[in-house]
Design a protein around this nucleic acid. Sequence first.
RNA 1: CGGGGCGUAGCGUAGUGGCUAGCGCGCCUGCUUUGGGAGCAGGAGACCGCGGGUUCGAGUCCCGCCGCCCCGACCA
Length: 570
Amino acid sequence: MLRMSTLFLRTLREDPADAEVPSHKLLVRAGYVRRVAPGIYSWLPLGLKVLRNVERVIREEMDAMGAQEVQFPALLPREPYEATGRWTEYGDGIFRLKDRKGNDYLLGPTHEELFTLMVKSEYASYKDLPVSLYQIQTKYRDEARPRAGILRGREFLMKDSYSFDVDDDGLKKSYQDHRDAYVKIFERLGLDYRIVFAVSGAMGGSASEEFLAVAPNGEDTYVSCTNCDYAANVEAATVSAPADTDPSAAPPIEVLDTPDTPTIDSLATFLGVPASETLKNIVLQLRHPDGSRELLIVGVPGDRDVDMKAVEANVFPAEAEPFEDFANHPELVRGYIGPQGLEGIRYLVDTRVTTGSSWVTGANENGKHARNVTMGRDFTPDGTIPAAEVREGDLCPRCGSLLEINRGIEIGHVFQLGRKFADALSLDVLGPEGKPVRVTMGSYGIGVSRAVAAIAEQSHDERGLIWPRAIAPADVHVVIAGQGEQQQGGQQLAADLEAAGLRVLLDDRHKVSPGVAFKDAELIGIPTYVVVGKTLAADGTVEIRDRRTGASRAVAVVDAVAEVVAEVAL
RNA sequence: CGGGGCGUAGCGUAGUGGCUAGCGCGCCUGCUUUGGGAGCAGGAGACCGCGGGUUCGAGUCCCGCCGCCCCGACCA
């Protein structure tokens, strides 16, 4: 039993000044966490109980799906990360340190290398696979900007698992098994979440989905269809493209004098056409992994911005950056670039730019634009990518209905990693024909500490936290509001509840007024609390209150244990 | 890393060059109080983020650094 009289807890009456989002404010106010350094937090007793409860749910489901728990160190040697290139790729993103001999170490940001090497050293036969391993480990990333309390920290708790299969079909099954397990986990955690398509990004690999907890303070933006179940991270979103038409049917190109119209706004105003009918050509510079540079021009409808993340996802592993060096490229007339007659420069268009579509665009001459510039006749791009930002009201690529945009917190990610790490670290098993077979992997993560914050984001009101039963720090909170008989009654009830198998938090503080006890109970957020107070003396009843609805009912103290047990079991 | 805001006691804050840095909460002692953040009395607690400078005098003005928050860039 937790007794408030001795519990290591101090609640705060006011929001901490450095907190912005509700989860941060409330977890600090209610005495669950305390900051010790930027993006680094300590867990106090109540917070640690919630964190452990989340871990327990995750462990149960991971074990149930057949994954086996292991534990790697957080402190890791440089060599495995050198072998996969990530010692360099991570740049400032990892914490590095040296031992007394000057050898390089890092604090693990993620553990693909270690899992891969572990399987390599233990297993050698296709008969050993498939296997899925997981750990719940503290991860370290030197984030440029930690924010929102434990929502994005530099030290955080993560469940990461990895599947190992001999072929793609096996990988698909392992992926699906993890996905199913994640659904069960997030259901049990009481989260409102969406599964969205994601880009695989710097990790390479193919199929990738994110589990996003719906929250206005989330860092991820996703689109979802108002009709069907299509949902995607904005970086991975596609939209329904207009149908192709016959380019020869378009009127001929017409070059127009458009002085002083280097921007889309000025052009649209000058010509009196909507910006959506103009074609904006953005010059980018690609940086390839080998250090070489390449120009890239991206054409998008003039009323939309280029989504750099979407572009990068399509030119991976190159990185894209804005191009500024117009002085050395006289063929690129800043503000008046058009795709017609662009020779030798890679040109990609947005999905919305289709064969047969005609545009107002630059004439590659200062002060001039061209009308009726038609794709398939006047220019042919080197490819089509979802380059323009997605907006609310765009059309679903699957059913054509309206898309809407919302924000979410990434709490899980499932990912068919493929052979990137197996290749880098030579992970083979002997196949049935006696020849080595390269292993294919999946990678699956859940942000454990982040999930606590995500739940707090979704489950609170102006008075405080409201935990789902599965992870609340206790099943029931007994508040003693009074002296003498109430004290005796409350102590007895708490003991009886505990004897009935419940986890009990008892507010047995003598000198605090009932108002303080009520406020604390609401702030701490145990879903059910029982008030033992004046009604005990008056008519032998106690109050059972529901934290979420505020509903209160009086029950005879002799029936209280049975009533509470029934309520908690719901 | 760029832009903006801000660092005063455990928490929230006042203090726009001039007396011993003020208030609320919390904490300690005593008495009273006990169904919605109690009252009275007495107390402890601050190198005013750090370093340098201007000035007769700096929490206050100037410079540098560090840290915090927000936006952006970045982020398996």
